[in-house]
């Protein structure tokens, strides 16, 4: 075994176990125990869910405030207003474009890199894996200032190219590691047979190996899309042209221009938050394990 198995991100195994079936029930609980446990559950759920309940109520309330209550004036006006007053259709289109482009770039880059790393036959291969994992712990909040400076010098500010490249790079360390694992499990003799048939290495990869790694590619694509969709720091420092704005930036600006002497437009911002959250929630409910696995891998601060 290489160092890889030894240095796998902390969470991978835990998630598999935590999401699996629970151990079989041991002993029936007494009524007192049932009541105590469920009271604690109630407190825990209140703490974790009240903010979301408020968000939903505020998004659909024409008179939303910070107070949580059933909408005083139930309406979808807040959603209409973000499209009419905040040019949200363009913002959404921008975000989808950036996230999809990032996803495609990531899938190509990690297919090549994960496969190559898996098949590479070097004495010091551990070190490459080690370096990749080290990069994964680098906080992007620590590289904000230099990335701003570097992007400015390279002409990558206010350009989707810069945003897409950076979003892709942020996800690469974990996904390379993940895809290497998938490729490690695909037997080499399959591609070696294809080489003997006269296929090039690249064609053998595309026609024989990649179809077998499809589940891994799906995970990589999903995580890359979500991460590019949700990421905000890089967007804030790289984009300041209105026409290039994406959802996180529109949300960031809507939040920061509030307060002071004007009344905070909770309803409008909440509506934006709901749309911003939507893809995240869809993936969360459709593929919880996938998403949790991706998040577990990250020790980066946000």
């Amino acid at each position: 075994m290489t160092a890889l198995a030894a240095t796998e991100p902390l969470g991978a195994k835990a998630v598999e176990a935590a999401a699996g079936p629970p151990p079989r029930p041991a002993k029936r609980a007494g009524p007192l125990e049932w009541i105590v446990v469920h009271l604690v559950f109630l407190v825990v759920c209140a703490f974790f869910l009240v903010p979301f309940l408020w968000l939903l109520s505020a998004a659909f309330d024409g008179k939303a405030s910070a107070y949580i209550q059933f909408p005083v004036q139930p309406t979808i006006m807040n959603f209409v207003r973000i499209f009419t007053e905040h040019d949200f259709a363009r913002v959404l289109a921008n975000s989808v474009f950036v996230a999809v482009a990032t996803m495609l770039l990531v899938v190509v880059a990690v297919s090549l890199a994960g496969y190559s790393l898996s098949r590479l036959d070097l004495r010091r291969k551990d070190w490459i894996t080690y370096a990749v994992l080290l990069l994964q712990t680098m906080p992007i909040s620590a590289t904000m200032v230099p990335i701003y400076g570097l992007a400015k010098q390279l002409g990558l500010r206010n350009s989707y190219l810069g945003l897409i490249l950076i979003h892709a790079a942020i996800e690469l360390p974990f996904l390379i590691w993940l895809m290497k694992g998938f490729f490690d499990s695909i037997p080499r003799h399959l591609e070696e047979a294809a080489w003997l048939d006269g296929r090039s290495k690249l064609r053998a990869l595309i026609e024989i190996v990649l179809p077998l790694a499809r589940p891994g590619l799906g995970i990589a694509a999903g995580l890359a899309f979500l991460s590019a969709w949700a990421e905000v720091l890089m967007v804030v420092i790289l984009i300041d042209q209105d026409s290039l704005k994406t959802v996180p930036l529109a949300f960031y600006e809507a939040m920061r221009t509030q307060g002071g002497y004007t009344e905070v437009q909770y309803g409008v911002i909440a509506a934006m938050a709901v749309i911003y959250l939507l893809p995240v929630m869809v993936v969360f409910f459709a593929a919880r394990r996938l998403m949790v696995r991706g998040l577990m891998s990250s020790t980066r601060g946000l």
């Binding site: 825990v44 759920c45 009240v50 903010p51 905000v232 949300f251 909770y266 911003y276 969360f284 998403m291």
Partner: peptide, 20 residues
């Protein structure tokens, strides 16, 4: 419920707690 608080984008968590 605990997981939900974790998967949502951090900036939304900030907004939710501004209101809270």
């Amino acid at each position: 419920a605990v997981l939900l608080a974790w998967v949502n984008p951090t900036i939304i968590a900030g907004f939710l707690w501004v209101a809270m």
